[in-house]
Nucleic acid binder design. Structure first.
Lengths: 107, 107
DNA sequence: AAAAAGTGTAACACTTAGTGTTATAGATAG
DNA sequence: CTATCTATAACACTAAGTGTTACACTTTTT
């Protein structure tokens, strides 16, 4: 199912652009286009412990508050920042939302 | 640390309101207020398998697309909907964002 | 009509994130 | 001086996450 042979993001980029044109031309409705967007989401880059810590510092949040915002436990956030555990997929998604859209997007 | 004795959300509601007043009165700055918001976030209600399925149907997404959006695996979404596994905390958070703010908030 | 692709159920086994707990410690507020 | 907040660290248990396979149904393509 997943190609994953050719670096992917390049290919998807191209395909996505093409789909965008089709949309403008009226061959793909808005809903289909959104689904397309979703499937083409490139996997979120892993957040290192230092990057998580930096992100948290940038927003001036304590580990406890960040845990609340992400709906996870304090213990978990701690271990991310120490490097003992890696954030799961959904956690990475939330981190990237915080990164790109700010705290308000998660409240 | 966590009281968790008296139903909590009631208490937090009250405290939060009080803090809001303090903010208006100028005793708490905006940043502190946001942190307060975050800590007072009431834990997200669990999404049942049928509710997840309904949410997905409402947005007309396939299981595969939903998995992409939440940055998790197809296998995981399947098991949520069959009721074999429960979504983790961060996953619940993402589901509630999709629920309340729509797909765009996750792209 | 037949083949191919998309969608979903089901079962299985493995890995690892998530969690709670406890002890320790520095900083800071009351 | 002592609580409280903040964070590190180690530990063990549970359950979520994942990949895989096989099967079935529907829709699309050739």
């Amino acid at each position: 199912m997943k190609p994953s042979k050719p670096s992917k993001s390049r290919v998807l980029e191209f395909v996505h652009e093409a789909a965008g044109d089709l949309h403008k031309a009226g061959f793909i409705d808005k809903r289909r286009m959104r689904q397309f967007d979703a499937l083409c989401l490139q996997p979120i880059a892993p957040y290192s412990s230092t990057r998580i810590r930096a992100l948290r510092a940038r927003h001036r949040l304590s580990q406890a508050v960040l845990a609340s915002v992400l709906n996870t436990s304090l213990s978990t956030v701690r271990q991310w920042e120490i490097g003992q555990k890696q954030p799961s997929g959904p956690s990475l998604k939330l981190l990237s939302i915080l990164d790109k859209r700010g705290l308000e997007a998660l409240l």
